[in-house]
């Protein structure tokens, strides 16, 4: 196998007490540093797929390999380690711990991953640099996250996903809480930072207009033989 960021083979996942599988993906490869737009409407099994990639759920059968590591054959603890070390997550909204300051939120991955802490160097400086790159004014850095606007919160969340240069960035509808012009700006910003960090980016959205920014576009319905699950 080549050194892909994400490799999926014969993946089958079924929710407990559900007769029909939710995901049945014969194959999906994402190369290191590759930027992929994954299109799927809500309820298409996106969240389930992200949970599997994050190692918080296990498939019924099949294999998921992250950065050459067979996720499906690792212990729960090792999966937590791998997620902490190598994946930066970015969600729709409410990404932050509201009672921590913006900069402390950015630093959180460094408390869970020694590797990302080492790679971040001087973590506080790195966090400050990332926030500056993402256009967050310095006077907001020490405000509690709850006091920031949604747009500011998403940029803090992006900085948090990027700190310590994880090899994989997974963004789940990160722009849905933003208005249209800001969506474009945010996606561009994210792509720029992902490129600078050399990270693979899996951008999941129901909004196909955003796909224009990406070289590769996948539709979940095309790769998932299970079709839309009843949920």
């Amino acid at each position: 196998m080549a050194d892909g960021a994400i490799q999926i083979r014969d993946l089958l996942f079924r929710w407990p007490r559900q007769p029909a599988p939710c995901l049945d993906i014969p194959e999906l490869n994402i190369a290191a540093g590759e930027h992929v737009f994954l299109h799927g409407p809500s309820g298409s099994g996106k969240s389930t797929l992200l949970g599997l990639l994050g190692g918080v759920a296990l498939p019924e059968r099949g294999e998921i390999v992250l950065l050459g590591q067979p996720l499906t054959r690792l212990s729960g603890h090792a999966r937590d380690r791998l997620r902490a070390d190598s994946i930066g997550f970015l969600f729709q909204q409410f990404n932050l711990l509201p009672w921590l300051s913006a900069i402390d939120n950015v630093l959180l991955p460094c408390t869970f991953s020694a590797r990302r802490k080492t790679r971040a160097g001087n973590a506080r400086e790195t966090a400050a640099r990332l926030l500056t790159h993402l256009d967050l004014a310095a006077e907001s850095w020490h405000k509690p996250a709850a006091e920031l606007s949604v747009g500011q919160q998403q940029r803090v969340a992006a900085a948090r996903a990027l700190i310590g240069r994880p090899e994989i960035l997974i963004a789940d509808e990160p722009t849905s809480a933003l208005d249209a012009p800001r969506q474009q700006i945010f996606v561009d910003l994210l792509l720029t930072e992902a490129t600078a960090a050399g990270a693979a980016l899996l951008f999941v959205s129901h909004d196909e207009r955003l796909a224009a920014h990406f070289a590769r576009k996948i539709t979940l319905a095309d790769i998932n033989r299970a079709g839309v699950p009843a949920s």
Binding site: G76, R83, D85, L97, P109
Partner: peptide
């Protein structure tokens, strides 16, 4: 959120 950041 903590779980996504790697908390077990």
């Amino acid at each position: 959120i903590l779980r996504a950041l790697g908390a077990s």
